[in-house]
């Protein structure tokens, strides 16, 4: 599917730089792992291998394989191969950004109102549905979730000031 965008009539980030970025991120992860392992000891103690023994070698493996990946990423990818077109990435971001806001809203206003907003936003903005339909689904879903989770299965979910106010 990435092949489709070859030809680069429309712009987008190069596949090569994204892949290199992922590999570098893995290298960072490897270094964190190795650091954490060294902190708890990587040799053999009285209780057999210490807590850091395995993570240390795992970290080394990540480091090694990621360096290979980095090299491959820079060598094998033609520079004109796109990761995705900007317009596609915009689509992706149109999920990532609202979801990020949603995730942080959960701690502030509870999961119910946050979910209502998220669903309404998607339906209205991306789906272009009429308001009546939007409201019905956006409000109905948290309601069903409330009944199923809190009332029926007794799972407490995060709540905000509104629920507090209603004494739920």
């Amino acid at each position: 599917m990435a092949k489709k965008s070859k030809g680069a009539a429309v712009g987008g980030p190069a596949h090569r730089s994204v892949e290199a970025g992922v590999a570098i991120f893995a290298v960072v992860l490897a270094l964190i792992t190795i650091g954490g392992a060294l902190a708890v000891g990587i040799d053999w103690g009285a209780e057999g291998p210490k807590a850091g023994f395995f993570p240390f070698y795992v970290g080394l493996f990540i480091l090694g394989s990621s360096l290979i990946n980095l090299w491959h990423a820079l060598r094998d990818n033609p520079s004109d191969k796109l990761f995705a077109e900007w317009i596609q990435l915009r689509q992706v971001m149109s999920v990532v950004i609202p979801t990020t806001i949603y995730v942080f809203l959960i701690s502030w206003i509870g999961i119910y109102i946050a979910s209502l907003l998220l669903i309404a936003l998607f339906m209205r903005w991306l789906g272009k549905y009429g308001w009546g339909y939007v409201v019905a689904v956006a409000a109905g879903t948290p309601l069903v979730i409330f009944i199923v989770f809190e009332k029926w299965f007794l799972v407490p979910l995060p709540k905000g000031p509104l629920e507090e106010f209603l004494g739920l």
């Binding site: 979801t99 999961i111 669903i119 936003l121 998607f122 339906m123 789906g127 549905y129 879903t141 979910l157």
Partner: peptide, 18 residues
Amino acid sequence: FSIIAPIILVLCAIGAYS
């Protein structure tokens, strides 16, 4: 998709939270 996707997101969040 524009209806089911946010609902899946919500259910995923609930799953992860609980």
